[in-house]
Simulated scan of single mutants.
Amino acid sequence: MTATVGFLYPGHSAEDDFPRMESLLNGAGAGVRLPLVHTDIGTDAHRVDALREMGSVDRLTAKLGELTGQGVAAVVWACTSASFVYGWDGAADQVRRLAAEAELPASSTSFAFARAARAVGARRVAVAATYPDDVAALFADFLGTAGIEVVAVRGSGVITAAEVGTWGRDEVLDLARSGDHPAADAVLLPDTALHTAAWLPELEAALGKPVLTANQVTAWEGLRLLDHPARCRAMGSLFADRAA
């Protein structure tokens, strides 16, 4: 039976990762659909005020009908920064209200990272972020609340998702390498505007450890909500047998 998860994606940057992931997963026999709709982001800026507005529940629920009409069984807010900027309790309330409106299980990319880190056995992580330093630090705080030790945080100072969406393989590999730390069990790349789905095995081979990326963990979280244990080595350690 096909598992269908719907994603609310902010604006237009790396949304083509989702059909790519759907293809990879189904090529491994997963039987999934990953439909996506775009939310209105307002101001495209990695600033706390802009991110809090971007993640306002009214903006998210305005697009829910487009997803529920596609027969989805769960909904995920496919955004990291416009979730963790509310703090743990605020992000939980965002998800709770989204689930109530959709009358479906719901989550967000921020919570996906916390659960995915545990799934690959990572107690200590390094954060390699596209964000400015102050926003990256808020993500580290969020992970700390989940009981995950952050041993290094690297910000890149990129203000807009539009710019992040132009990054290719070389920039993504450089980001992961520069953000790694010898004490980290895994490296986290927390921006759904960043294309990563095409290079997940290559990233892990380059670093020699699990690499968790925003769109990857978002897809995994949606399938977790449906208890659908998809296995696909092209999707990295998170989708390997031991983590599934």
Rank of each mutant, 00 (worst) to 15 (best):
M1V: 13
V5D: 02
G6I: 11
F7W: 11
L8S: 03
Y9C: 09
P10C: 13
G11W: 05
S13G: 12
E15P: 11
D16N: 15
D16H: 15
D17H: 03
P19H: 14
R20F: 13
E22A: 14
L24P: 14
L24E: 14
N26M: 11
N26L: 08
N26E: 06
A28C: 15
G29N: 03
V32H: 05
L34M: 06
L34T: 02
L34F: 06
V37Q: 05
T39K: 04
D40Q: 14
I41Q: 00
T43I: 14
A45V: 09
H46C: 12
H46P: 10
V48P: 11
A50C: 07
E53S: 14
M54Q: 08
G55T: 12
V57H: 15
V57E: 14
V57M: 13
D58M: 13
T61V: 11
T61H: 04
A62Q: 09
A62I: 09
A62G: 07
K63G: 09
L64F: 00
L64E: 02
T68G: 04
Q70F: 13
Q70R: 15
Q70G: 12
Q70D: 14
V76P: 02
V76I: 09
W77Y: 15
T80P: 03
S81Y: 03
S81T: 02
S81D: 02
A82Y: 00
A82Q: 00
S83E: 02
W88T: 12
A91D: 08
A91N: 12
D93P: 11
D93M: 10
Q94T: 08
R96D: 15
L98F: 13
A99W: 03
A100Q: 15
A100K: 13
E101C: 15
A102M: 10
A106E: 02
A106K: 06
T109G: 04
S110W: 01
F111G: 06
A112S: 08
A112M: 06
F113I: 00
A116T: 10
A117G: 14
A119L: 12
A122F: 09
A122W: 02
A126K: 04
A128P: 13
T130W: 03
Y131I: 01
D133A: 09
D134Q: 10
A136G: 09
A137I: 13
L138H: 10
F139P: 00
A140P: 07
D141Y: 11
L143A: 07
G144H: 05
E149K: 13
V151R: 08
V151D: 11
V151T: 13
V153M: 01
V153A: 03
R154A: 09
G155A: 03
G155S: 01
S156R: 12
G157E: 07
V158R: 02
V158D: 04
I159N: 14
A161G: 15
A162I: 09
V164A: 02
V164I: 13
G165M: 03
T166S: 10
T166P: 04
W167R: 13
R169C: 09
D170H: 10
E171P: 00
V172Y: 00
A176W: 05
D180T: 11
D180F: 10
A184T: 01
A186I: 10
L188T: 12
L188P: 07
L189C: 00
D191W: 01
L194W: 11
H195S: 10
E202M: 05
A206N: 00
A214T: 07
W220D: 01
H228D: 01
P229K: 06
P229N: 05
R231I: 14
C232P: 12
M235D: 02
S237C: 11
L238S: 10
F239C: 07
A240N: 08
R242Q: 14
A243I: 03
